[in-house]
Design a protein around this nucleic acid. Sequence first.
DNA 1: TAGTGGTCTAGACCACGGT
DNA 2: CCGTGGTCTAGACCACTAG
Lengths: 234, 234
Amino acid sequence: MSGRLNKNSGIPLYIQLKDIITERIKDGTYSTGEILPSETQLSLTYQITRQTARRAISELVKGGLIRTEHGKGSFVSINELNYSIWNFNGFTDYILALGKIPVTRVLEHEIDNDMLKLVRARGVKEVNAVKYLTIDTSYIPLELFPGIENYDFSQNSLYSTMRRVYHRHPRRIEMSVHAVNPGQIERDLFMLEHIPPLLQVSGEVFSEKSRLVERVSVIYSPKLEFKMMTTINP
Amino acid sequence: MSGRLNKNSGIPLYIQLKDIITERIKDGTYSTGEILPSETQLSLTYQITRQTARRAISELVKGGLIRTEHGKGSFVSINELNYSIWNFNGFTDYILALGKIPVTRVLEHEIDNDMLKLVRARGVKEVNAVKYLTIDTSYIPLELFPGIENYDFSQNSLYSTMRRVYHRHPRRIEMSVHAVNPGQIERDLFMLEHIPPLLQVSGEVFSEKSRLVERVSVIYSPKLEFKMMTTINP
DNA sequence: TAGTGGTCTAGACCACGGT
DNA sequence: CCGTGGTCTAGACCACTAG
């Protein structure tokens, strides 16, 4: 049981509990369709109020990982689906969670009009090749991130660098989705024979204080499923 | 001031408050960027606890309508963007909210394997033509909706019919997004000269009790912007 | 310092599902 | 009937923002 909450860590209890449950779902302790401990049970186990346990569950529902049924309980609804790709948050983490090895190749790295232009192909390592899954084109304002052009982003995560070195935390993304025909780069990297249309997501990423930290455009390989879930308000 | 909560209506107070605030935003009482009354103020005004007011605000944040800033307040973040199209919920309402007249044309209407197959083109009325924006292909299980094949869905909303006549409430949608090349129907209806790839969203719609109420696939005209917003958890 | 949102507690009553 | 999740209250302390 790694399951004990630290009341003085500064991390909200509901976040800690949420993380513990997420972990349990990822490692299979709770698997799809299974019922979770009741809210009352959770509050007793972790020595918190039911409201706080509810808050953790509510976060998980929001993320689509679990579902609640009135009078019955909470159930695991999805295993690792729905960690949607365009949760730009963590491509690396996402691939690692699938038990595979992430690969990043920097295709372009130059300064363009006070912005760092960064083009990266990202994928997973296969037996004797690399399968590329996305091509990301990013523009990062040098004004906010002076010196960021000196990092090697085939090794470092862009967002961790923003957080750890510059103390800027990407928070909100506004994006739009388009369908596009593949260009030469996409054909080469995705190794397409026929040329199906591809999905492209273009977005602007903002920090807490609504400063633009990245303008980004991602093209997805047809090998990536693009799934999501939503609910309807009555 | 239509602003009074009914404590015995059966409708949760936080939903009532959420609706009131939504109304105020839509009608311009609070406009983009403006600050909302504080949580304490709301709780006093509406005679509820701060927690309940918070819950209403939390719902609005989830929907992207407002944004909170610690130590400062809550602000209107978006006016009517983000009532995203693939909120299948209300194409009709969406178009009406834009001040335009929605049009639905039924292209196919037949029974296929215990399912009602319904193909509809949807759009807006222009001066002397109709601009089609989506083509929806739906399969509805007759077992759950006996007799639904007798409704005219160029006039009636599919979801309202499900709700009002059959007491089934669409709640959850699982969907995937693809890029496709247009077929003849799309070229004709969207009146495309060049043939750009199109976005297609395929999904399954479930009721409260996780019964499948519709399998649907929507193809979007390139004239529709496909926008969304999301947040990153630290 | 005063006001704001963020977290948490302790307790209550309700509506729903299954026994 | 009991156990479940859903809503709500009353009050507390904290962290952040601004004058």
